[in-house]
Design a protein around this nucleic acid. Structure first.
Lengths: 207, 207
DNA sequence: ATTATCTATAGATCTATAGATAATGC
DNA sequence: ATTATCTATAGATCTATAGATAATGC
């Protein structure tokens, strides 16, 4: 029996490539069926590797899922981190909205993977939210609060403001199946959303 | 072997009560683990009935799930149906927002059940969305459009407006695990949300 | 007589491992 | 020599049914 490459010193090129293929396939499968709904068979099919081969590269189904969530957390925090204390307050927030919407457009599967996890009580991501998201959230809420105090933004609760931004932007990825039915094949849905959200948050925040 | 009560003429009191208990238990289990994540064992435990007894009242796991979704669709449409062409436009929409938020407060499990289903591509609810939600959505969009044309509301895309209302209100139920972490045990989160959303949509829609 | 419930288990599905073989890098 | 891959299958989990027994309503 070969030992798992988990313990190897330097990952070979093949290792890196195959781990990547597996994670890519797993993102596809987990994001559309949820953790329990996904099977190793599906991930094997999607990645073009055999099932035992997948378990050669990862310790198991859960290990793959955890890797995906860890990766995800970083790219999830980034747009909020970019909120710049030195920038123009209204502009900064409107740009944040557009960045989030851009992520919905570029990474809808990641959005659904995250939504699946949170929806089911964040069983594997709870600690990550505490350690990673919470401090950043608090920091940026304090920043927005200072902007409000300085009169650069209309009075608003920064926490609910951020929730509204997350909710409205991620909605187009997470509820895509519903949006598709209701928008009946219309093109450029996200462009329309961009215009709408820009107007909404501008009106809300203009002092 | 007893025949299933599905075909019986008049459901007995016991039948009604037990079917209700099963659906209540299934709502709890399906909404927190998703369709695949839920097991008949969990529903049996939660309902206090034995597993085979559950299958005496329903044809199977999927049958239970479909019953829940059918029930849900009705109560999901109701708040939007109440949007009254004869009412004051701004007031009507703000009241709709509060009704949706009230449903988040009262029926968070139903919200998560729905979110789980849509998130995974609406495999069992797709036709229902087409037949039930789509016509109502179109009707109410046309109504809002008329209000806009009449100058009673600021110019806005009714479809994205409705998406924003759904997204922001349901967020507190669907992403509850995240909201809890970030609001750190604060009381009255939904009251704060109510104030925030009232302000946001009022500013957006005031002509 | 009919309705409701239980124990036991068949049968399907799924994760994971054993153990052998092939490919690759010194 | 080490890394990567395959076939076969063990073992766990889960849905559903068989078949017997208990409770209920005429």
């Amino acid at each position: 029996m070969a030992s798992s490459p988990q313990s190897a010193r330097k990952p070979s090129r093949i290792q890196l490539r195959n781990r990547k293929r597996i994670l890519e396939a797993a993102l596809e499968v987990f994001s559309s069926h949820g953790y329990r709904g996904a099977t190793l068979d599906q991930i094997a099919d999607e990645s073009g590797l055999s099932k035992p081969n997948i378990l050669y590269y990862f310790e198991g189904k859960e290990d793959i899922h955890v890797h995906l969530l860890n990766q995800l957390m970083e790219s999830w925090l980034e747009p909020l981190e970019q909120l710049d204390p030195a920038g123009d307050p209204l502009q900064e927030i409107l740009e944040y909205v557009q960045r989030k919407l851009e992520m919905t457009r570029e990474f809808p599967r990641e959005s659904r993977l995250f939504a699946n996890e949170i929806l089911q009580g964040a069983p594997r991501m709870g600690p990550h939210l505490q350690a990673g998201l919470k401090p950043l959230f608090d920091e940026k809420c304090a920043l927005i609060e200072r902007w409000v105090q300085a009169g650069a933004l209309a009075a608003t609760d920064p926490r609910h403001l951020i929730f509204s931004i997350w909710a409205t932007t991620q909605h187009y990825a997470d509820f895509d199946a519903q949006v598709r039915v209701l928008m009946a094949g219309e093109k450029g849905v996200l462009d329309g959303a961009g215009t709408h959200l820009e107007t909404m948050f501008r009106k809300l925040l203009t002092p």
